[in-house]
């Protein structure tokens, strides 16, 4: 099953959900409307033998501006991985959770929330997974500023006002 076949099959089934193909060499991506993502992935899982959620991760595009969730659907039958991308508003992004379809989505969505602040509606326990619970901000966003202190511990190696000559790459 080639990428074009998958695209046609999805367009035939969900004409309003598939927003087009992104020419991201070397592999193309499918742009999916966020509202229909669960339906599309359910269809892929149940009808098109994409058994596994290979990966789910967030992306941050400050230039667009947009947040994005990239799903990698993995098929053992077709030996193929297909990437679906959902673009969301950069601030207050939220999308339907996949936890009803894949158990893997639980932790992967928690990580995307932790790193990008994307909220997943219907997730059973959407809380931070890698950073501590009381962490401020979402580190992988491009505009993230490393805090100076966390719980009284200094975070950067050197501060700007410290010895300038040893500062090297300035503040971390």
């Amino acid at each position: 099953m080639t990428f074009e076949e998958i695209h046609q099959k999805l367009v035939a089934k969900f004409p309003q959900a598939v927003q087009g193909i992104e020419e991201t060499a070397p592999e193309k991506s499918l742009k999916i409307h966020p509202e229909h993502i669960v339906a599309v992935i359910r269809f892929m899982k149940e009808e098109m033998q994409f058994e596994t959620l290979g990966d789910l991760c967030g992306l941050d595009y400050p230039a667009l501006p947009a947040s994005c969730v990239a799903y990698h659907m993995q098929s053992y039958a077709h030996k193929k991985v297909v990437r679906l991308k959902c673009y969301l508003p950069r601030e207050g992004a939220s999308i339907e959770s996949l936890t009803s379809l894949f158990k893997a989505a639980n932790w992967l969505e928690r990580e995307a929330f932790d790193m990008f602040g994307i909220r997943f509606n219907g997730h059973p326990e959407l809380r931070r997974i890698l950073c501590p619970e009381d962490w401020v901000g979402h580190p992988l966003r491009k505009d993230y500023q490393t805090p100076d202190y966390y719980n009284g511990m200094p975070v950067p190696l050197y501060f700007d006002n410290q010895d300038e000559s040893t500062a090297g790459n300035a503040k971390t």
Partner: peptide, 20 residues
């Protein structure tokens, strides 16, 4: 000792255990 290779962007790395 000092954060090692993670000293620059390591927002979650303590730069040296001698701080605690």
């Amino acid at each position: 000792n000092k954060g090692g290779p993670y000293w620059h962007e390591g927002y979650h790395v303590l730069k040296g255990v001698d701080r605690i």
